[in-house]
């Protein structure tokens, strides 16, 4: 073995552990485009859903169609007095035609122009869609799970004690193929070795992190049932399928990209595709 081999062994042995730090949800702002009465009824459905986990005692305020007509009003309100959580749905203010493959400018602005987490619910007037009574099947979605403590902490906080926490990581097979193709064209790289080891290592990192999460949550007596979903695949298609198969009540994902204003690519794709479930956009 050479110096590089040993260095790789030791670098690989350094794991990123999960740090349990539950979010403190003191206040929530419900933003709707219906009147106060309808908003109150809607709030009545949301409160038990959120309280089914550990998020109880939240101080609620609302912003209804009677309070605002412009996105900037919502943004000013959130910036002036930031709540712990904003709850809303797509296409607020009936923004033109409700294009199915968009979130509407209010949600776009809230997720990207503020740091406040947004709980995106199915529209209350959407036919055939009802809000789950409790969050017992919660899934964390990310293309970089390792070290994403914030996502996992929110998920653990909102999931019911007897529920299941699905910590997932789907490595995009198209990207992996691109890298392996590049490896096959570099003379110094053992392609067979790269083909065997690269996917394994890419999946080992989130698997180790999930194992650490599961161990720490179990130690704290919070969640016994943490399930790992780690594989190489087609993220958007696979997540859509998994969400349906597992009957996920709440999907949690990261929307912030460090180097751009637009929403994180996978999060945006899933947000527009999965319209029948609550999504927590962090």
């Amino acid at each position: 073995m050479k110096l590089d081999d040993f260095e790789s062994v030791f670098r690989s042995s350094v794991k990123t552990p999960f740090h349990h730090a539950p979010p403190n949800i003191e206040s929530a702002l419900l933003v709707t485009d219906v009147d106060n009465a309808a908003t109150g009824a809607f709030l009545g459905e949301i409160q038990p859903f959120l309280a089914s986990g550990h998020a109880d005692g939240i101080e609620w305020t609302t912003l209804t169609s009677e309070d605002f007509q412009e996105v900037s009003t919502v943004l000013d309100r959130v910036r002036r007095n930031p709540p712990s959580l904003v709850v809303c749905y797509r296409h607020l203010l009936g923004q033109g035609v409700r294009l199915p493959y968009s979130l509407g400018s209010t949600v776009d602005t809230l997720t990207q122009a503020t740091d406040v987490p947004v709980l995106l619910l199915p529209r209350p007037d959407e036919v055939g869609i009802t809000l789950p009574k409790k969050a017992s099947q919660v899934m964390v979605v990310t293309d970089h799970l390792t070290g994403d403590d914030r996502l996992v902490n929110w998920a653990a906080h909102l999931c019911t004690d007897d529920g299941t926490l699905f910590l997932s990581h789907i490595e995009d097979k198209a990207i992996l193929k691109k890298y392996l193709d590049a490896c096959s064209k570099i003379p110094g790289i053992d392609f067979d070795l790269a083909k065997e080891k690269l996917p394994k290592k890419l999946l080992a990192m989130p698997s180790d992190y999930i194992a650490s999460t599961s161990e720490i949550l179990a130690k704290q007596g919070i969640h016994e049932n943490v399930q790992a979903l780690v594989k190489v695949g087609d993220p958007v298609k696979d997540y859509e399928q998994l969400v349906e198969e597992l009957g996920v009540d709440l999907l949690i994902m990261n929307t912030k990209d460090h180097d751009q204003n637009a929403m994180h690519a996978l999060a945006y794709a899933l947000s527009v595709e999965i319209r029948n479930r609550p999504l927590l956009l962090l």
Binding site: M1, K2, L3, F6, E7, V9, F10, R11, V14
Partner: peptide, 17 residues
């Protein structure tokens, strides 16, 4: 040589950590 490679590379990683 092997000893230096093993302990040296671990030293680099651990002190960095």
């Amino acid at each position: 040589v092997a000893a230096m490679m093993i302990v040296g590379s671990l030293t680099m990683v651990s002190l960095e950590k």
